[in-house]
Design a protein around this nucleic acid. Structure first.
Length: 592
RNA sequence: GUGCCCGUAGCUCAGUUGGAUAGAGCAGCUGCCUUCUAAGCAGCAGGUCACAGGUUCGAAUCCUGUCGGGCACGCCA
């Protein structure tokens, strides 16, 4: 139970009492109200808009409603002040004790501090990365991968039952191209001069290894065979190889999917046919002719009767063809089957991470989910904008053709996995992001990765110093959780606690909005508050956390530091960034 | 032409789902600081929240329209 929920219940009870006594006459159910920290610390500890939202149903102006509630709230021993302000806010001041107790709560919960149950164990599937198995992970994949993975941790922390999923297409022409290129590299590995990689093949160097590995396994077995003989086995070999490579790459930044689903399986085990049949049975399939797309000149447009899915019934702008003119499945059919498969597995919420260049996906797929689940399951797409790579302040042009790819491996090797992950979360997903190799490792205030990690390292440092004063068993989280912290009374310290008490609210809001970047911003703010407090001790030694001639005070303040360290760790855990205990070693040597 | 997203300080961006006087960092100006871990701290200045209407106690946030930018829009995979 968070402080906010406790006080919300108190306010709610006050409303009930006022209604029971006749002081407040409600002509309808009371609308929901909030108890939250006010924007201005000067307004008190907590603020509620209850009087304003009640004004209409009570038939009184907000301030009058507030006046009625005020004496009732004042009876609560935890509340030391009630003020009516502005358009009808009720500002509350609480006993410092309430905030001090929060420190103990943090230490007891450890990294689980901030966990929430709003997810109600709802089964949610988050599909992310889902790159097709034709090459290594590169810069273009990383942002969506990190956002998706962080979202899974966030949802889990908020009480959802999360499955991490990866879907790949292994039945289209892309994997055939992969197979043919592999075959070329295989011949190369056996000593043949293959010259330039021709058009229509993948040029990347990384496929050389696949060819070599295949040659090692199979020798000259395929050299004089016809494509019809080698295509399938080599394709399988190459797809497996690529998927292993991708998984190794993802492992570098701590991403592990629970489930891998592939297109070919959905086709071969009949899921696709079954999905179509179900839509047919629901009367959602018909043969018809679509009008030509509007606003775009289509020279070769010829109207023709096609097998259509009545998706317009579910909010789509048009019905969609499921079969091509030649009778083959249209390209969306495997995706439809895939979503049918997810619903079969019981997911009530499905979230797909996609690049912003997949614009119309949600509009096409939502009707599918609605149709299969009778509108019970929901699909959402989190779109992420592009990443622009900078080196030495210069933008790096990326092109697959020229082989100028920045790989995930390269990024991790240069700046570290934690930094890559953190930096990818420093923008709203919808905004473009500049990833500057120099900036990510810069040790300055305006590098958020450094700033937050430094706050953590500083906490560690202080605790190390404390271990010289206290026996180790006295400064464990368990021991400190029992410390008397009534000595924490300065406004700055209380402000820090109040901010930490928000952690659970941030988790809930970020999970609900499916916006993991909010975690990064929260940590940046927490770090700023903490650094600010540290610097006060710079000017005034009595404000330092370690006060050598006052053990009790030191113990009290160490407890606060332990709490800060814990909340930072809790946040970094959601982001998948390992907390650093020391930054010293990473500091570049200054030139003499 | 249609749909989605974006437009907030000179620059890069937040903005707790409709709350009180719109916030950070950088750059600029003014002072400090040489350390419980150093790579800084405090303050000042900076705004028609693209524009115009509307909704209500209250709008950067919701609705309509306009302007500007990005992306997506066939049976292509």
């Amino acid at each position: 139970m968070t402080i906010f929920k406790t006080i919300h219940a108190v306010v709610s009870t006050a409303v009930d009492e006022a209604a029971k006594s006749g002081a407040l006459v409600l002509n309808a159910a009371a609308p929901t109200f909030v108890v939250e920290p006010p924007r201005e610390a000067a307004h008190g500890d907590l603020a509620t808009n209850v009087a304003m939202v009640l004004a209409k149903v009570a038939g009184k102006p907000p301030c009058a409603v507030a006046e009625i509630l005020k004496p009732l709230l004042e009876q609560n021993p935890d509340i030391t002040g009630v003020e009516i302000a502005g358009p009808g806010f009720i500002n509350l001041k609480l006993q410092p004790k309430i905030w001090q107790q929060e420190i103990q709560e943090i230490l007891k919960s450890g990294i689980h501090y901030g966990d929430s149950t709003i997810g109600n164990r709802l089964k949610v599937n988050v599909e992310y990365v889902s790159a097709n198995p034709t090459g290594p992970m590169h810069a273009g994949h990383v942002r969506g991968a990190v956002i998706g993975d962080t979202l899974t941790h966030l949802l889990a922390k908020a009480g959802y039952d999360v499955t991490r999923e990866y879907y790949f297409n292994d039945a289209g022409t892309q994997v055939d191209v992969l197979a043919r290129t592999t075959y070329l590299r295989y011949r190369e590995a056996l000593g043949e001069n293959i010259g330039e990689i021709p058009d229509g093949f993948y040029p990347g160097e990384y496929l050389k290894d696949v060819g070599v590995t295949l040659a090692q396994r199979d020798g000259k077995k395929w050299m004089d065979k016809d494509e019809s003989e080698w295509l399938v086995p080599i394709r399988n070999f190459a797809v497996d190889y690529m998927m292993r490579m991708i998984r190794d790459d993802l492992d570098l930044i701590g991403i592990k999917h629970d489930v891998f689903t592939n297109e070919r399986e959905l086709i071969e085990n009949g899921t696709l046919e079954k999905a179509f049949k179900i839509l047919e049975d629901k009367g959602l399939i018909y043969v018809g002719t679509l009008p030509p797309p509007k606003g775009k000149v289509m020279e070769d447009w010829e109207p023709a009767p096609l097998t259509l899915f009545r998706s317009s019934k579910f909010g789509d702008s048009t019905d969609r063809p499921l079969k091509k003119r030649d009778g083959n499945w249209a390209y969306i059919m495997p995706d439809i089957a895939y979503h049918y498969n997810k619903i079969q597995r019981g997911f009530m919420l499905m979230i797909n991470m996609l690049g912003t260049d997949h614009g119309g996906y949600l509009e096409r797929m939502r009707p599918v989910v609605a149709a299969f689940s009778d509108d019970k399951a929901h699909l959402n797409v989190v779109y992420n904008n592009i990443v622009k790579i900078f080196k030495n302040g210069e933008p790096v042009k990326l092109s697959k053709r020229s082989g100028n790819l920045i790989t995930l491996r390269e990024m991790v090797e240069q700046v570290g996995a934690g930094a890559v992950r953190f930096f990818m979360l420093t923008r709203d997903p919808k905004s473009p992001l500049d990833f500057d190799f120099a900036k990510v490792v810069e040790q300055t205030r305006d590098n958020p990765v450094f700033y937050v990690q430094y706050a953590h390292a500083r906490c560690c440092s202080i605790l190390r110093h404390a271990s010289e004063i206290f026996p180790v068993n006295e400064i464990t989280a368990e021991a400190l959780a029992k410390t008397d912290v009534s000595g924490i009374t300065s406004p700055d310290e209380l402000l820090l606690i109040k901010f930490m008490a928000n952690w659970s609210r941030v988790v809930e809001a970020a999970a609900t909005a499916q916006e993991p970047h909010r975690i990064a911003f929260y940590l940046m703010e927490l770090a700023a508050l903490f650094h600010g407090l540290w610097h006060k001790g710079n000017d005034n030694a009595s404000l330092r956390f370690i006060v050598p001639d006052d053990k009790n005070l030191t113990r009290t303040r160490i407890t606060l530091i332990k709490a800060v360290q814990t909340v930072i760790q809790s946040g970094l855990a959601v982001m998948g960034c390992p907390p650093l205990e020391e930054l010293r070693n990473e500091r570049p040597e200054e030139a003499a």
